[in-house]
């Protein structure tokens, strides 16, 4: 039973990270209707940047991490302006191909720059594990859960109360109306990429601190799909819940497998089974709006 609980807690913690990445994926989708296949690479780039600042420049974490975030903001803006802005008005499929291409290019570039082997972060926390309700959990996981919750609350506040957040929602709702209100749609697109890249990088660094940094990090970009499709492509809350569900499912499936089935690695793709089942019942996801095709 303790193992089950342990896996459940793990599921929630990892699921929250999935939720964060899913949120940043939905942010881009909502603002510009682009399905970003390079989301996982944002985690990778963020993690490697932070790792590089900490190991090569010997910066303490609390300096290296903020620099990483600023870098990712700038990176997101440049990516949007240079690569995606010229694609505005092109068919969706072309834009999707571009993001797939970006993902391949980033993967290769990271391997070329940092090698193919996982590299550990220098130790960041004084004690590597913490006791949470009687369970041994890695400190970084507890911190990561805290950060995830903080980011989610931040997103909630941003879209509900901030001027820019409202403007982004308006842009997602109707670009012409947004422009009639004085909102620069182009700027909103760039900002959605910037914030998305930055938030993904937070998840990337967190996972990197736990497992070491390697191209395996970009798996998160794939895991995001069951999460966002569960939650509905255009729902931020749905993305969070979808992420949690995927995280818990994975871990529960692992438990079931280790106790009874012994099928091996099948649990890795358990969320995808559930995804298919749910999509058969609710084609717009659990929280998606039906007029998803509105332009």
């Amino acid at each position: 039973m303790t193992l089950f609980l342990q896996l459940l807690v793990n599921g929630v913690i990892v699921g929250a990270l999935y939720g964060v990445v899913a949120m940043s994926f939905v942010l881009i989708y909502k603002a510009s209707r682009i399905v970003n296949f390079a989301q996982g690479e944002f985690l990778l780039i963020g993690a490697w940047t932070c790792w590089w600042l900490l190991t090569s420049w010997h910066l303490p974490f609390w300096i290296g991490f903020p620099i990483t975030l600023v870098f990712m903001l700038v990176f997101g803006v440049i990516l949007q302006v240079v690569v995606l802005r010229p694609m505005i008005g092109e068919p969706i499929i072309s834009v999707i191909m571009v993001t797939i291409g970006l993902s391949i290019v980033f993967q290769a570039a990271m391997k070329w720059m940092f090698g193919v082997f996982a590299k550990p972060f220098p130790p960041i926390f004084a004690s590597p594990t913490t006791n949470l309700f009687g369970l041994e959990v890695q400190t970084v996981y507890v911190v990561s859960l805290g950060i995830s919750i903080l980011i989610m609350a931040g997103f909630g506040w941003f879209f509900k109360y901030s001027r820019t957040g409202l403007a982004m929602r308006a842009t997602a709702f109707d670009q012409q109306v947004a422009q009639s209100l004085g909102i620069s749609v182009r700027r909103m697109f760039a900002m959605s990429w910037a914030i998305s890249a930055m938030v993904s990088a937070v998840a990337g660094v967190t996972v990197g601190v736990v497992n070491g940094v390697s191209s395996a990090l970009s798996i998160f970009g794939i895991k995001v799909f069951p999460a966002v499709i569960l939650g509905g492509l255009d729902s931020v809350i749905g993305a969070v819940l979808g992420g949690l569900i995927v995280g818990v499912l994975e871990n529960v499936a692992q438990y079931v497998d280790s106790q009874w089935l012994n099928w091996g690695n099948m649990y890795e793709i358990a969320p995808f089974y559930v995804l298919i089942a749910i999509l058969m019942i609710k084609p717009y996801g659990l929280f998606g709006t039906k007029d998803i095709e509105r332009v």
Binding site: R163, L166, A167, R169, A170, F173, D174, Q176, V177, S180, L181, G182, I183
Partner: peptide
């Protein structure tokens, strides 16, 4: 809009999935 011309488009075009208050605040964007 920044120069001081504001169009109220045909068919109202309010942002349906926001509250009145949010719509009004966006007017002052």
């Amino acid at each position: 809009v920044r120069k001081g011309i504001f169009q109220v488009m045909e068919g109202r075009r309010i942002i349906a999935d926001m509250t009145c208050l949010e719509n009004l605040r966006l007017g002052a964007y």
